[in-house]
């Protein structure tokens, strides 16, 4: 489905602030799979998702969807294929506009925007039907500005919007991180439900080990702009939270292994 080969991205190249956010990342995502991406802060998880979504064009490498090279596609063009939910609950919706207006926009994600009335009675009843399934009582507030809702409600709506038209790929970037534990659990549950019932292909960045172990069927660990671990299929089934923490430790240990350690070990190990 998604095929990423050798993508790299350096921010502020050739300055003191240079950050190699992605280094030659290769990744294949199978149709219908649900992949969690974990890693320390600044390891490049969001940058990877942004590269896939087209927020920027990578310095190097190729991104293909179903064999189609989309590396040079702009972000809005990729929106035909990709649904997104961001970490910031305010990022996925237009705060001053009503729930109905926001959803109506998502009902034509990546399609033309004709000069016909957007929020019709028919659209509204369709929206009410789907929103009712969230069990948040929002179906009676379709004309309220989305900015008046809680972060959890907005995030649930963003998720609904991102999946209203079945995306080829759903990208979730720590979409429960900014929520209180209860809302986070609810949105996580909703995520699982939607992904399973619609059989979506999804990638989810998360800092919650529990989520990484519970929800998806694959775990990719990133560090310093590289994929350092990839638990798939059987391995994913076996993996437990302590294993993930161990792996983090190992990766970090390797980090601490610098030239001075090399000198120390040359003297004392051999």
């Amino acid at each position: 489905m998604l095929e990423i080969s050798g993508i790299s991205k350096t921010f502020f190249p050739q300055t003191v602030n240079e950050v190699k956010a992605l280094r030659q990342v290769d990744l294949r995502i199978e149709e219908g799979s649900f992949t969690a991406i974990i890693g320390t802060n600044g390891s490049g998880k969001s940058t990877l998702l942004n590269a896939i979504a087209g927020t920027f064009i990578p310095d190097d490498g190729i991104i293909r969807v179903d064999g189609k090279n989309i590396t040079e596609w702009s972000e809005y063009k990729r929106a035909q294929l990709i649904g997104r939910v961001f970490q910031n609950p305010f990022a996925g919706t237009a705060a001053d506009m009503s729930i109905a207006e926001n959803i109506v926009m998502a009902m034509r994600r990546g399609q033309s925007r004709p000069l016909t009335r957007a929020v019709t009675q028919k659209a509204k009843s369709e929206i009410a039907d789907r929103v009712r399934m969230l069990n948040m009582g929002l179906e009676d507030r379709l004309d309220n500005a989305i900015g008046t809702l809680s972060g959890g409600q907005r995030q649930a709506l963003t998720l609904l919007m991102a999946t209203w038209l079945k995306p080829k790929l759903l990208l979730l970037d720590e979409h429960t991180a900014a929520l209180d534990p209860k809302s986070a659990a609810k949105v996580a549950e909703l995520t699982k439900q939607i992904i399973e019932s619609e059989r979506l292909t999804a990638m989810m960045v998360t800092h919650s080990m529990q989520q990484a172990v519970d929800l998806p069927d694959r775990i990719v660990m990133m560090h310093r702009g590289q994929i350092v671990e990839d638990y798939q299929k059987e391995n994913k089934k076996r993996v437990r939270i302590p294993d993930l923490l161990d792996t983090f430790d190992r990766v970090q240990k390797r980090e601490l292994f610098d030239e001075t350690v090399a000198a120390l070990l040359t003297e004392q190990y051999f």
Partner: peptide, 17 residues
């Protein structure tokens, strides 16, 4: 030849703490 510098990372793991 003994691996030098960071190449030693591939051969040895150091507790680091």
């Amino acid at each position: 030849e003994l691996p030098t510098g960071l190449k030693m990372r591939d051969w040895l793991s150091f507790s680091g703490e």
